[in-house]
Design a protein around this nucleic acid. Structure first.
Length: 375
RNA sequence: GCGUCAUUGGUGAAGUGGUUAACACGCUAGUUUGUGGCACUAGUAUGCAAGAGUUCGAUUCUCUUAUGGCGCC
């Protein structure tokens, strides 16, 4: 079946909303945060550990799995869920973002047909088209597939973006035409940078195609300001249907998640919690901390006193600092568990604040505490 | 006891009679937003064993002392 979103409560003073999303692998409350498992694994975590963070949907990536091991191998295994032993819902990104992120310093050729660029693995020339992306995602058998879009850099001009979103709309149409998997939903992506007219146009035209859900893309890219990100959301949301899920792509800074929820976003994904974990950093109620710091060497308290995750229930900063400085694998795992749980717990609390119609007060309290740092 | 070679930061070390003593590791701090996992950025010896001398100027030359390696009695 396709995913189904039900709006259960609209917060009184903001656009924030509480709802549920029904999937082939269970029903989950929104707003929610989705951990990223690009190469069919949330780096460093077993599926059981992912589940224990109370994560619902988990991401995987079309581009990466296309190159290795190849969609046919995953098809042969019976689809992504069986392949990676994850029995929760899976969303696959289309590869559109990789065209942007992997080709930063390399040649890429964006044409009407698709994008031609070189493999980051062996340099061979590759052509990814909207049809190809959807076909791969069909075979991966994820629960939600994403349209193949162009994700332009933050520095893109209004003129460039205008042409880019026109092409992305044509790509979306082409992808939708070849999408055949009845058990898989397909989401459209709104682009347009921080520009009101472009976001409006992109949103209206994308919605006309009647996707199963809508995402706001092209945010949080290389040095984009927070103001521009919030504009991108504010200018897109009014044109998205209330009965469909809204997905803000690539956002995972705690403060940005709060701002996104207040503006009407339902789901988020981000590599931040797992990436910073591997580099020794952790989100806490008192701001982000770096476990490399010498001040933690004898600290026998948990990473975050107010956290209920496996890591915080069982380990001290002193021990995790030791694991991080000695580059032991377990360090990255324990911090990833914590950071993912931190964001998921944040969304749990946001859901409560929506139901209580006091999300603005919640935001104020959170920010006050988050900015205290050190304590 | 005699001879000989050494002694540079937390570590391994490069180097020169003349502005800021290379590099690496470590350490310290920071960055990371639809992941090219284990990366990147910045800082980190007011001093070259100690003392004296030569010199306009010495970590670099000379002497003494200390410590260590090797060889000989």
């Amino acid at each position: 079946m396709k995913v189904k979103y039900s709006l259960l409560h609209q917060e009184e003073k903001t656009n924030a909303r509480y709802g549920i999303i029904e999937t082939n692998y269970g029903t989950y409350e929104t707003p929610m945060f989705m951990p990223v498992g690009t190469r069919a694994t949330v780096k460093g975590l077993t599926p059981e550990q992912v589940k224990e963070t109370k994560a619902g949907i988990c991401l995987a990536n079309t581009y990466h799995l296309w190159l290795r091991p190849g969609e046919n191998i995953i098809d042969h295994a019976g689809g992504l869920h069986r392949f990676m032993n994850y029995d929760g819902p899976i969303l696959t990104d289309s590869g559109g973002f990789q065209v942007f992120s992997l080709a930063k310093n390399k040649k890429k050729d964006i044409t009407e047909e698709g994008v031609q660029f070189k493999s980051h693995i062996d340099g061979q020339k590759l052509l990814l088209t909207p049809e190809k992306s959807i076909e791969i995602q069909n075979k991966l058998d994820s629960d939600i597939a994403m349209s193949f879009d162009e994700c332009p850099p933050a520095s893109a001009t209004h003129e460039y973006l205008k042409n880019s979103i026109e092409r992305t709309l044509r790509w979306a149409r082409r992808g939708k035409q070849v999408h055949k998997n009845p058990n898989q939903s397909l989401f459209g992506i709104v682009q347009g940078g921080p520009y009101k007219d472009l976001r409006k146009y992109s949103a209206i035209e994308t919605v006309k195609m009647d996707f199963d859900g809508y995402s706001i893309g092209g945010v949080a890219n290389d040095g984009e300001s927070k103001e521009d990100m919030y504009k991108a959301i504010d200018y897109s949301i009014p044109y998205l249907p209330k009965d469909k899920i809204r997905y803000l792509m690539g956002v995972g800074d705690p403060l940005d998640i709060i701002e996104g929820v207040i503006r009407g976003v339902d789901i988020f994904d981000c590599v931040l919690p797992t990436r910073i974990a591997r580099h020794g950093q952790a989100f806490t109620r008192r701001g982000k901390i770096n476990l490399h710091n010498a001040k933690f060497i004898k600290d026998l308290t948990p990473v975050d006193l107010e956290c209920d995750c496996y890591t915080c229930r069982n380990y001290t900063k002193s021990y995790i600092r030791h694991l991080i400085t000695t580059e032991e694998m377990l360090g990255g795992t324990l911090l990833s568990i914590h950071n993912i749980r931190f964001l998921i717990k944040l969304t749990e609390e946001l859901r409560e604040s929506i139901k209580n119609n006091n999300i603005l007060e919640y935001r104020q309290k959170f920010i006050e505490q988050y900015n205290k740092q050190d304590a």
